[in-house]
């Protein structure tokens, strides 16, 4: 899974490793506007809760959750902007 994710063309990368909840979700919300429709956004977070947060948030905001993997002490969470 992580190999496929690593190969993705990421349009917007959000480094939210410096903040705890709700920081990463708010950073994702701030950055989604800069992501073109159809583009992939990657949220880097050191808070594991971000994975399910972004899963649910993507669903509600009508985007597509792509996947996640653990990097060196943090998580990379991928979603595709659909609308």
């Amino acid at each position: 899974m992580s190999e496929e994710l690593k190969a993705l063309d990421v349009a917007v990368e959000v480094d939210a490793r410096g903040t705890a909840c709700p920081g990463p979700l708010l950073d994702a919300k701030r950055a989604i506007g800069d992501c073109p429709v159809g583009g992939v956004m990657c949220v880097m977070s050191s808070d594991e809760g971000t994975i399910i947060d972004i899963q649910r948030w993507s669903k509600k905001m009508k985007h597509e959750y792509v996947g996640d993997y653990e990097d060196d002490g943090f998580w990379r969470v991928y979603m595709k902007k659909l609308v």
Binding site: C21, P22, L25, W57, K60, M61
Partner: peptide, 11 residues
Amino acid sequence: FIIALGAAAYD
């Protein structure tokens, strides 16, 4: 405030 901000992220 955390709950408020979470909800705001959901528009």
